[in-house]
Design a protein around this nucleic acid. Structure first.
Lengths: 345, 345
DNA sequence: GTGAAAGCGCTAACAG
DNA sequence: CTGTTAGCGCTTTCAC
């Protein structure tokens, strides 16, 4: 009793084969693009499939093929990951590409115990062909994943030498370009706000900053290097430290847009005008970078590409092709907006 | 050749029944909590299931039950929906609750043609038990969904008289409370920024505003009622109109946080100090309302509850219980932050 | 090039 | 209360 097509009965491969006057094998071969069917028969079958608007039942395919066509996407349990505008865009890339390749992407929240998680359940039930993580995962998780031999890829890994397949952005380069832009605008006294919580991330962003600084033989005061940012509020405090130091810089490079937003808010609260008194550049180009005042000058990271590439790497693994281990997004495109003052103009 | 448990071979219901010395029926009954098994047998079977860490294969269940245990979550094709911090929190509620009830939630992007969409494919293949939409859907979609008799629920519907099962927030009430708060702080000249793109949303927010205003016999100038906001930039322009009018208000109520952010940015750019010169209150309490300066005083909407309730309503439909048609979130809790000046303090 | 038939792992009549 | 068995819709081996 459905109204899908002309028929009231649900179609299946048997009915299609009867309509075509062939065996189910022939229909199956056509469906799966296998050879062993004459061109004439193939055409006839294809026509009927088209006419009847028939789609094979995924669940029986899943059963016999022991494949789920599901990719699990693991989000951090706390709301923050999804709230992080950065990953929203990545997810769009993931879903678009996954669907194109015939996968469903199913959402999953990270739980305390990996073993008892819905994800683990799914894997055991052949209900996940692969999994995608946003951000690096801990050793216990890696261990479990290895044990059960499930393909996975990590997006936006910060590790210098990741032990898993992942797609990452070149934050050293981004940081270099963002800092260099400040220098090109005539700034010589440039502070740094970064996040040391993830050491490898800290190192690459700081190295990018340092490279630009030392290239021009500039220097910085210890108080200008702030490493305890991890959200807007903590970045705010970093900025406070900078502004309370003996030497106030004319510009600050921030390792993420959200830190720049925190920093600008602090400058604002302490009576500084941005960018007149102090300039900001950063890395990420999340939507919020256009909502703040002044609008942020930042490095764009192609988030959709990150998501799409991750699916490609995962698909390759699922199909037993060993993909490259680490795919690096270039990320050297600066989006010039209003947060940097040109001192040399 | 897997390492799941003690055995190298994959478990199935037959093996479990052999271990227990019973029939597969008994095991199946125990698995599905059906009666017809003696307490003793049940216990024995349960023990073995526990010991062997056995989980029944979902795909064969799906096949025979003609149920997918999948709920599709449809996101707007453009990046904006996921980027909208409001819905991020809703999604967390959805996934948590859905998993608790044994569903997977699979992500799906809205496509131009509903008929050819991955969602429609899934429905036809018995691969979706129900679907959840964020925001109202158009008549074509409603028509298609009705035709194929798939349960669905719409989250954050703005319609006054929705023709489908949905969960919505009481924006009239929220708007009233937010406006009333401005009045309680001594403001008498209060402007309004809203979005007329969705007429029913406009009406309820405007009505809430108007109710608070007229209760106190206050009045407003036509220029103070701006209805063309739909994002940060358009709200910015609305605010410009207000500030360029002959009479500048002391406060503005905005029908969404993002409009308040646009409005505050405009005030800032035009040399007004918020909240000293002009105050803002709004509705939504998205994360960004804490990142902007000053931090927004706004009405909290329980987004996680929205998501959870939607799943409950959907689950009820799937199980052939007719749920209430419209579930309304109350949303009258004001979060007082820094965007409103107390004139009477 | 084509068809018959044996499962994949489970549920649920039905018979005992 | 328990066991036997016929499918669910598909893929794929094997025989023709």
């Amino acid at each position: 009793m459905n109204d899908y097509g002309v028929n009231m009965e649900k179609l299946n491969i048997k009915k299609i084969s009867e309509m075509a006057g062939v065996s189910t094998t022939a229909v199956s071969f056509v469906l799966n693009n296998k050879k062993g069917v004459s061109e004439k028969t193939r055409k006839k079958i294809l026509d009927i499939i088209e006419r009847e608007n028939y789609t094979p039942n995924v669940n029986s395919r899943r059963l016999i093929l022991k494949r789920s066509f599901n990719i699990f996407l693991v989000l951090d349990n706390d709301i923050s990951t999804l709230e992080n505008l950065f990953y929203s865009a990545v997810i769009n890339g993931i879903v678009g590409k996954a669907n194109k390749l015939g996968y469903n992407v199913v959402l999953s929240l990270k739980t305390a115990s990996f073993e008892k998680s819905p994800l683990m359940q799914a894997i055991k039930q052949n209900n996940a062909d692969g999994v995608i993580f946003l951000q690096d995962i801990d050793n216990e998780t890696i261990y479990e994943l290895r044990k059960i031999k499930i393909p996975y890829v990590v997006i936006d890994s910060q590790k210098a030498n990741p032990e898993y397949v992942c797609v990452k952005s070149n934050y050293e380069l981004s940081s270099y370009v963002a800092t260099k832009y400040l220098i090109d605008c005539g700034h010589k006294r440039i502070a740094f706000i970064g996040m040391s919580k993830i050491p490898d991330f800290y190192i690459s962003t700081f190295n990018g900053y340092k490279r630009a600084i030392s290239e021009q033989s500039l220097s910085f005061y210890p108080d200008w290097i702030q490493s305890d940012a991890y959200d807007e509020t903590s970045a705010y405090n970093c900025m406070k430290n900078i502004l309370n130091s003996n030497e106030v810089p004319t510009a600050v490079f921030c390792a993420g847009d959200i830190y720049a937003i925190g920093g600008m808010n602090c400058a604002y609260d302490m009576g500084y005008k941005v960018p007149y008194d102090i300039s900001f550049s950063s890395v990420d180009n999340i939507t919020a970078s256009e909502y703040c005042r002044p609008k942020l000058t930042t490095i764009d990271i192609d988030k959709v590409e990150m998501g799409e590439k991750a699916i490609e790497l995962l698909d390759a693994q699922i199909n037993n092709n060993l993909p490259e281990k680490v795919y690096v997004i270039k990320s050297d495109k600066i989006i010039v907006r209003d947060s940097v003052r040109k001192l040399n103009a």
